Amino acid sequence: MPHGFDKLLHHEPESSPPTPPRRKSTLPRYHLHVRQQPIAARACGAGDRDRRPVDPPPIVQILLTDFDPESEDDKDTLQDPRFTVGCLLFPFSDSSTWTQPPDPEQAERDQEKEKESDGVARADDDFSTPLLSGKAFMSPFYVEADPDPNSAPTHPSSDDINPPQSSQPHNLRNASKLHQPATFFIFADLSIRTAGLYRLQFRLMNWGSVEDTGQSMPILAEAWSDPFRVYAAKDFPGMRDSSILAEGLKELGFVELKTRGNGKGKGRKRN
């Protein structure tokens, strides 16, 4: 038998090549998405008795790059109780063009100049301003399934050629992803004392990084709200009916949300 012919008759399959390791994502792991934008508010008084919440209440959602709903580690990450989101208030000029979120450092410099010119003092805490009152830090609220899947965003993917920015809307889920878990930060207790045009900045942090490393707490992700108007009492158009998302989150246990429906928004002016 010719040399090597026996190998052709008794061919042994070659072992399958090893699966190449998954390409490491170049995107940041954490993202914030403003799921429910603030639209309007009635200016409140200086005391705690005259509280006029921003309407609708801003709702921010955390998204994870390459989130796997079957991964226990990813679901544990969404449920980490050490996450928190802080909220900052910034004035917004009517003449500005809202094309993309402004540079945070420049926005803070502009705000400092404005305060120096009108004599308004700022609190020592970096996440509070004299005009904003209420709960400016919120803990995560985790749900097993999104209460409004039709408006739910997708988690970013490292395979995206042009991944969406964290403050911009994401594509809707497809039908196979309707029951994914979600984590929200719900700002149901924000009030603003002076009429004007504003925007909110949200910053994601994790207190655990301080406990684990002893170092200062980094900002993991940021997102900006759309501009919204705060009205004087005589001009306020009234509260809107609650969204499907807000109704669902209250039913799931977030009792701080005050919901309104059936065209009976409190204080809404009739045409």
Rank of each mutant, 00 (worst) to 15 (best):
H3E: 05
G4R: 03
G4T: 11
F5T: 02
D6S: 08
L8E: 13
H11Y: 12
S15L: 15
S15Y: 05
P17A: 10
P17F: 05
P20E: 10
P20R: 07
P21T: 01
S25K: 07
S25R: 13
T26A: 02
L27H: 08
V34L: 07
R35W: 01
Q36R: 08
A40M: 10
R42I: 08
R42G: 12
R49V: 05
D55F: 07
D55M: 11
I62P: 05
L64Q: 04
D66V: 06
D66F: 06
F67Y: 13
E70A: 12
D73P: 02
K75D: 15
L78C: 07
P81N: 04
F83A: 05
T84M: 09
V85P: 05
P91C: 03
P91M: 03
D94F: 04
D94Y: 05
T97G: 12
P104G: 15
E105C: 15
A107N: 09
D110S: 11
E114L: 13
E114D: 13
G119H: 00
A123D: 09
D125A: 13
T129Y: 00
L132G: 09
G134N: 01
K135Q: 11
Y142M: 05
A145L: 02
S151T: 15
T154A: 06
T154N: 08
H155K: 01
P156C: 01
S157R: 11
D160I: 01
I161M: 09
S167Q: 00
Q168M: 12
N171K: 04
H179P: 00
Q180R: 14
Q180K: 12
A182W: 03
T183G: 09
F184N: 13
A188S: 15
T194D: 13
L197E: 03
L197S: 10
Y198N: 08
R199V: 07
R199W: 01
Q201Y: 13
F202H: 10
M205V: 09
G208E: 14
D212E: 11
T213M: 00
T213E: 08
Q215G: 06
Q215S: 09
Q215R: 08
W224N: 07
W224D: 04
S225C: 08
V230E: 02
F236S: 12
P237S: 09
R240E: 10
S243I: 09
A246T: 04
K250I: 01
E251D: 14
V255C: 04
E256L: 12
K258A: 14
K258R: 14
G261H: 10
N262G: 09
G263F: 01
G267E: 13
R268T: 12
N271Y: 10
